[in-house]
Amino acid sequence: MVPAIGVLRYSFLDGDYLLDGHGFTLRHYLRFFSDTYYSSVLWDTFVDGLVVSLICLLIGFPVGYSLARLPPLARRWRTIIVIMPLTLSLVVIVFGWLIVLGRNGLLNSVLVNLGIISSPKTFLFARPAVILVLVQQFLPFMILSVMSVVTQIDPVLEHAASNLRANRLVTFRRVIIPLATPGILVGFNLVFVLSISAFITPRLIGGNRVPMLGSLIYERIMSEFNWPSGAAMAFILFVAGLGFTAAFNALAASRFVRGGRHAL
């Protein structure tokens, strides 16, 4: 809380340089909202966050579910494999991707050898590359969140649904999803919040061509030394992120948890 309060305080200081701010002003907020560039970057950041979260959900749910249904020993080893990327430095991961996605990289080599493309293409420094790397970084959070909740769902419930002549799709939609909603929401929130605040990946993989608000804040504070303006941008991202996740959680809970209860 203390750093967050500090950021809030700085954001209202009237100054453009390091700690020299004084007085009270709203001009850093006004500058942000009056310039369409910043609001468009905020919008793109949220869209990217949503896309990354959805992709992580689509990949992470089946993986988390299957892990949860494994015997404990097999689950332990597979969980270690899932967690392993988190033990690596983010910078190492990003530089690894720079090599994989480069013109002489693995992806281009495979595509050329398979005859899908005739000559190497530039995959780096574009939005899809940034999203791909963000998904790889944050997927473990989704898998672990889903797995931790699904392990609490008694498999007997699925058998009961089957006995009541529910097919697998209906069981999945009316039993598994409502009961796994807390895990899905936690995973979705984690991935979303981590994605919208990412700054290393957009800077290195995006090469300044894919602006996200996190990287602009980093620039404003570490390169321009305009701490009050950077603090205002950070606080806007914080409030917008908090508001979005709160609204999303409320919506998802009303849709799935209540619906699930009726279904059950």
Binding site: F95, L98, G102, R103, L124, F125, G207, R209
Partner: peptide, 18 residues
């Protein structure tokens, strides 16, 4: 192609012929 954020990134772009 990109605005490099570090010397290493810049060198890498030339080494990989990006």
């Amino acid at each position: 192609l990109a605005l490099a954020q570090s010397t290493v990134a810049m060198i890498q772009m030339f080494e990989t012929k990006e």
